[in-house]
Amino acid sequence: MTATTTHPGAAPTWRRVLAQTSFETRAILRNGEQLLVTIIVPVLVLVGLTRGTFVDLDTAGESRIDFLTPGILALAVMTSSFTSQAIASSFDRRNGVLRLLSTTPLGRGGLLAGKVLGVLGVEVVQIVVIGLTAVLLGWRPDPAGLGLALVAVVLGTGAFTSLALLVAGTLRAEAVLAVANLALIVLAVAGGVIIPASRLPGPLEHVALLLPSGALGEAMRETLLHGVLPPWSVVVLVAWTAALGWGAGRLFRWH
């Protein structure tokens, strides 16, 4: 990070990236639809599934709220790092925003860093809001697993942000809008996020465990229910991040 010395006209790297991070975070939280998808829907799902008895759940001896909250947090991570990021980036790309910002000292690298950190910023808000709601509903996570759960969140964010940038950088904005919402719903229902992979019918169980959604859901449940981070989930998430990040790096088109 020698930007301060070798590029006199530019603000220091950390300041540029910080500015972009808060810009991205605010842009998402100020956008009504994004707010709905990232915060309101997960909270409603949490309250609905916990309080409502219309869905029969085998909670394996855990309380309904303890069993559901980790999956809802995983879902929330997917909404911010995948759905909302993919949609925002694809429209920014179509409108030339990515090109214009990349001509400022921020550059392409700073822009991407700001986007990833902006997602983490949104996730902080999500975790606080969902966590507090869950605690009010009686959630008592395993204290030993809290730190590990944050590791899982970061790993999941890496995989899903890479996926978001891959679709945003290759498909038309309208297509991204459809794909990102559809993928979220499919993965939420059949990807091992809220319903554990082991409860899914037939071969879906094994497929879900190989998906980033299943790996993240599993990691969140194991850490917050039992205080352990499953190595298999870590392997799957890191592998997806590497593969999707490589693909996004190769295929991303700026215009």
Binding site: A10, F23, A27, N95, G96, V97
Partner: peptide, 22 residues
């Protein structure tokens, strides 16, 4: 030399490129 040039070059694109939500 993009890194060295960016602080010294100003750009106004024909198709705008301004973020729209702010």
């Amino acid at each position: 030399s993009a890194r060295d040039l960016r602080p010294r070059v100003g750009v106004m694109l024909q198709d705008g490129g301004l973020p729209t939500g702010v």
